[in-house]
Amino acid sequence: MMDKLKLGVFELTDCGGCALNLLFLYERLFDLLEFYEIEEFHMATSLSGEGHYDVALVTGTVSTRRDLDLLKEARNRSEYLIALGTCATHGSVQGSVELPIREKLKAVYGDESNPMHALDPKPVVEYVAVDFALPGCPYDKREAFQALIDIAKGIEPVKKDYPVCIECKLNEYECVLVKKGLPCLGPITLGGCNAVCVRSGLGCIGCRGPLPGEVNPASEYEILKSKGYDDEYIVRKFKTFARWEP
């Protein structure tokens, strides 16, 4: 049997859900351990590797100087780095507020001083090159499992290229946008979650970030407007998890 791959899980600033989500793989976690050795994961091991990682999973946004240092360490010491979860891929909720950090500190604490060396929260992908980006708030754990086994077997994981609507229809869910007028961002949001929100009768709030490529937010905006939602509501909705590039 070949040597196991060394896996590191690094958490920057986030809610902790994405790191925890890995543990929710339960028995599938043992399948991963057939190929991986966890060298660094503060939630699952007290080991703290100093060496080299074959695969690094990074969750969270870069929101402090410490985050940035940790991210650079992880990048420099790993072969394959995965930005895991929407914080790491798109900035998520904390990254969607567009104000310079001093102004944010002032708004929240009434004081501009910055003893924690806070930075304007930004996704991992803005600071380092990543080998794979897997969004979702949290990401779909089965998707992470597929990617990790793929890598262990020497297969490059396949990037999704379709919006949430595709899986919504594969499951034959009633379209909440067309049939109930709910503000569903499914058409402009990257799929892969199996349209879980629509399964519960809710509209997609865009937690997997914008569909890459020729996504059409302008048309989605017009559609929501025609359903009676106002400008401010729609713009806020769009920007819950990602800063849309114009």
Partner: peptide, 11 residues
């Protein structure tokens, strides 16, 4: 310009 390229029509 109007089409979302959502693929619903194909599905």
């Amino acid at each position: 310009e109007k089409c979302l390229a959502c693929g619903n029509c194909n599905m």
